[in-house]
Simulated assay, not measured.
Amino acid sequence: MPQPPAPREAPALTRRRALRALAGLVGLTTACTSGGEGTGGAAGPGSAPGGFPLEIANCEATLRFDAPPERIVLLESAPVTTLDGIGVLDRVVGRAGVFPPGYYEDELADRIEAIPALSEDIDASGHLQISQEMVIALTPDIVFGLPDGVTREALADAGAQVVVQDIYCGTGGERASFETLHATIATYGEIFDRADEAEALTASLQDRVQAVSDASGDLGVATAAVLYPSVGGGPLYTYGAGSMVTAQLDALGLENVFAGSAERVVEISAEPLLDADPDVLIVLYQGEGDGGAVVEEVTAQDQLASLRAVQQGALLPLLFNFAEPASPLVVDGLERIHEWLLAREG
């Protein structure tokens, strides 16, 4: 069943308190030491902004910020729309990985293109290949993403704190919901002293999710699976209860046939997919293009040809960050899935 949405018009102070409390529950936030109260206060001469120094629990690490970071390096694309939404994307001094323009409006895509690119080398499983020396050379004070070959310790020694998407750290068996996204945005607001901007961004996203949920009704389908096929015929992955795709399907009133797994992502063979035989398949991909080649690779597998979704052409290619991890792009992805399902019914 869909997760109940947050109230659409909660008072501002109540919403802010709720977001901060929620962020603590999911293991993202905050233990502030002395240095002022609140997160958006003005700093006096020679002092840190209100709320700093700030300590944030992030996966197995505790991050410390003496002031809002000024030099950002992105080793993944997911944080872009959150950073832009709270008004700090202009602090990004370097990026690595794939940033397909299909994620963004033209103006934002142009700004991203203008950011110096360190590496676009992605392996068959979609993982970034980069040396940490390239990252350290940019003297960041915050880095988003932790690909193989890059360590928190080395970057911390160079003066940079590393933020890993909370959903990648393990969900403790909890079913993902859009509250995961709200907590992530609240944490970014804490780190960059942009609590008001984070609150406004969350409110707008809540309204959009509610609008899709209200409009879903009977979409003519009941079940779905979300797949990530490795390039070149490697393993096939699907997404379970801990993934944001489950939150999306819940909002649409659809059952994720693999939500019985508490894991975020699991490698599967063809057999469980054939047994589940979902009404629709959503196929995630990275890189340029419309995803047609990835869909062809999935449907070309003899074992999958008997799936109803394959036989009926009920497959939607979707750029990866429209489904994972928690960022405003998953709300864009929710809207895209909804529009596709409506078009199929029409």
Rank of each mutant, 00 (worst) to 15 (best):
Q3D: 15
P5N: 14
A12M: 12
L22Y: 09
T33M: 14
T33V: 13
S34N: 13
T39Y: 15
A42R: 13
G46Q: 07
G50E: 14
N58I: 03
N58G: 01
I72T: 07
V73F: 08
A78E: 11
P79I: 03
L83P: 00
D84R: 04
G87K: 01
R91Y: 06
R95E: 02
G102Q: 04
E105D: 13
D106I: 12
E107M: 06
A109Q: 02
E113Q: 12
I115W: 00
A124R: 08
G126C: 04
M134N: 14
P140E: 02
V143Y: 08
D157P: 13
A158C: 04
T171V: 14
L181A: 05
D193A: 13
R194H: 10
A200W: 11
G234R: 11
G234F: 05
Y237S: 12
T238P: 06
T238G: 07
Y239W: 12
G242N: 08
M244T: 04
L249N: 04
D250W: 06
L252W: 06
N256T: 00
V257A: 02
E267C: 07
A270L: 05
L284T: 06
Q286T: 12
E288H: 09
G291K: 05
D302W: 10
L304D: 05
L304T: 04
L307D: 03
V310N: 07
L316Q: 02
L319E: 05
P325Q: 03
D332L: 02
G333I: 01
L334Y: 00
L342C: 12
